[in-house]
């Protein structure tokens, strides 16, 4: 009994801390505005309304934002996987000097606070005339997503048995062919993990998009959501509904690929 408590107690705390805010936002998205400001607040909704969902879906900027998010996160994921896999494979397979240095260098990239480099990036993109284009955001998102992708993929590639490649080489495949025809297919779980994490990162990204994109028609949802407001008032219900709408695809994605993500993340964790 006590042991059980020791396991479930902390788990419960973590779930409460992580999940409760989402449940609360869900509740905010479903109650009318007058209930939002009731004091003391209601725990369970008194009234249920879909008004806030209607508000967000009636807004063309929000619908366009979903499309833009999909474009930006989709392109970022694709690029991060292509470059990530191409970088991870040699890092996992080839022995060469400075390998550890490169791995550390790649990881260090992930430690840069984005705020610190946003100003030089802004100038750079202005000079390249990339400001206000999807490309600007996709490029930066890819750069920031790559370290994680490379690390996950490297760990995953490393645990694949070398015999497979040897066999492929015997059959006359080049390194790249081996990579494409043999390694990538069996590395799918790792690729999925890296892909989903990249997608989630790019989908949630706000700072770069907010800085580099001026035109409403290019804003991803994260930039659109704060605009459910006027100069006097914030449409908390609308923002909550929008937040839920934006979160749902991610939750589904993770639930569907849950097993693969776990196997991808733990790859190489235990020497077999």
């Amino acid at each position: 009994m006590r042991a059980r408590l020791a396991t479930w107690g902390p788990a419960l705390v973590i779930v409460l801390v992580a999940v409760l805010p989402v449940v609360w936002v869900l509740k905010m998205s479903l109650i009318p505005r007058r209930e939002l400001f009731r004091s003391p607040p209601t725990v369970l909704p008194d009234d249920i309304t879909l008004q806030h969902y209607r508000t967000v879906f009636d807004d063309p900027a929000f619908r366009q934002g979903l499309v833009n998010s999909l474009i930006i996160a989709g392109a970022t994921t694709l690029l991060a996987l292509v470059f990530g896999a191409l970088a991870a494979y040699p890092l996992a397979r080839l022995r060469f000097g400075g390998r550890t240095f490169i791995m550390t260098g790649i990881l260090a990239l992930a430690f840069f606070p984005s705020v610190a480099i946003i100003a030089p990036l802004f100038v750079e993109f202005r000079n390249l005339q990339l400001l206000n284009s999807y490309a600007a955001v996709i490029i930066v998102d890819t750069v920031f997503a790559l370290p994680l992708a490379v690390w996950i993929l490297t760990a995953f590639f490393r645990q694949l048995p070398r015999d497979l490649e040897d066999a492929a080489r015997m059959d006359g495949a080049t390194t790249l062919q081996t990579f494409r025809r043999v390694i990538v297919p069996i590395a799918a779980p790792g690729v999925f993990t890296a892909g989903i994490l990249t997608f989630i990162f790019a989908w949630n990204e706000f700072l770069f998009a907010n800085t580099f994109l001026f035109d409403e028609s290019r804003w991803p949802v994260t930039v659109v959501i704060p605009n459910f407001a006027t100069q006097y008032s914030i449409d908390y219900g609308g923002q909550a509904a929008a937040a839920i709408v934006v979160t749902v695809p991610l939750v589904l994605l993770v639930l569907v690929f849950q097993r693969r993500i776990v196997s991808g993340l733990t790859a190489g964790a235990v020497k077999g």
Partner: peptide, 26 residues
């Protein structure tokens, strides 16, 4: 010099300001 004025940065709480601060340069 522009980047070290981090205080200004944070003070304005903005991120876009990062761009603005740099534009002393521009």
């Amino acid at each position: 010099r522009q980047l070290t004025s981090r205080r200004d940065f944070l003070k304005l709480g903005g991120t876009v300001i990062a761009g603005a601060a740099l534009f002393g340069l521009g």
